[in-house]
Amino acid sequence: MQSIRDVAKRAGVSISTVSRILNNSANVSDEKIAAVKEALNYYHYEPNQFGRGLVKQKSNMIGVYFPFSSHSIFETSYNLELLKGIEQTLPHYNYNMVIISESEIYESQEESGPRFLESAGQRKIDGLILTGLINKQASELALKRLIDQQYPVIYIGKKLHQRGMNIYAQFENYTINMMHELYNKGHRCVLLYYMHLHQTYIEKISVQLKTELPELKIIPSAFKNIAKSREMIASQIKKYVRDGSCTAVCSPSIELLQLIMGICVELRLSIPDDISILSVEHKKGDGALMYPPISAFYVPAIDMGREAACLVLNMINHENNEIISEEFVTEYIERESIKRLI
């Protein structure tokens, strides 16, 4: 199979000239363009998918951006369900997705800029779905820059910029509803786990709950990595539940829930007799597979993925989007993991 080097040699030009012609990125004489086209036809040379897209100013690729995490993006049901929804939608429009993951270095170096900005600027992708942001100030500025340029971008999370498009899973609402659910069953001290990215939201939630449920004591605890947080979580459950007054624990994901349940077994805590557990599930029915079956708020991540893909494709095709911001309603599924105290 001939390469771009062979094309350049037959056309009597440099490799960079062939690249510029393929990318349509610089002025090149008609003679050189004709010579390159003849060489391309002679060798039946086809650029890779990115190359073909650059000639057309289209890659038929959608970028899906994940902020840095110390665990694999494929280890959480939220990410997997989100990707499943996107993957089910794109092929119907002759599109594929490329995953853009952030590096650990970026979290402390604002000047480097998020990776999604580079992919969009180099036209490697036709549109972008952001699943979250780290290094908030720099990332939000990068997102605003794309919005100002009318680049097709959808943010999954609470709306950050007035003109941006987003879909949202009502994190604050269902977290508050979790506390109300436990409170109504008589629980007055709850250990609440959350991802560190949600710190700002948790602070606002705590203020609201102090007004709505003044008798409820909430012990919030942030984590970054589930596996590395095991010792901390075991110590907290021992202190606040086994040896303290906490009667319930809230988990933000099935993955953390599995760790919590294992710790409860080690500490000989029975669910729900000694400790009630309320979780969040992103794949419907995951909580029912536990023993005992875990009560949970279902966040429809797969539907969010489908909707995000549809919205960004509409933007690419210059179709009017009536939806600027869409909130997905969560569903509470009561099972057997919460003990009624009153």
Results as ranks from 00 to 15, higher is better:
V7F: 08
V13H: 08
S19H: 05
R20Y: 11
L22M: 14
S25A: 11
V28H: 09
S29R: 12
E31A: 03
K32F: 13
I33T: 12
A35S: 14
H44W: 00
N48F: 02
Q49S: 13
R52M: 13
K56R: 08
Q57H: 15
P67W: 06
H71K: 04
F74D: 00
N79S: 15
L82K: 00
I86E: 06
V98E: 01
E104Y: 12
P114V: 03
R115I: 04
L117H: 04
A120M: 13
K124Y: 15
D126A: 08
D126C: 07
G127W: 13
L128Q: 10
L133Y: 12
A138Q: 12
E140V: 09
L143A: 02
L143F: 14
L146I: 04
I147V: 14
K158C: 06
N166P: 03
Y168H: 09
Q170I: 01
F171R: 03
N173P: 00
M179Q: 13
N184R: 11
K185F: 06
K185M: 05
H187L: 06
Y193Q: 02
K210Y: 01
T211I: 09
L216I: 07
S221A: 13
N225T: 10
N225L: 03
N225Q: 09
A227T: 13
S229D: 11
R230F: 11
R230D: 03
Q236R: 12
G244K: 11
A248P: 10
A248E: 07
V249W: 11
S253N: 14
I254W: 02
Q258R: 12
E266P: 02
S270D: 05
I275T: 04
L278Y: 06
S279C: 11
K284C: 02
G285D: 06
G287E: 08
P292W: 14
A296F: 03
I302M: 14
A309W: 05
C310Y: 09
L311E: 03
V312G: 03
L313A: 04
I316G: 13
N321D: 03
E322P: 03
E322K: 04
S325G: 14
V329Y: 13
V329H: 14
I333G: 00
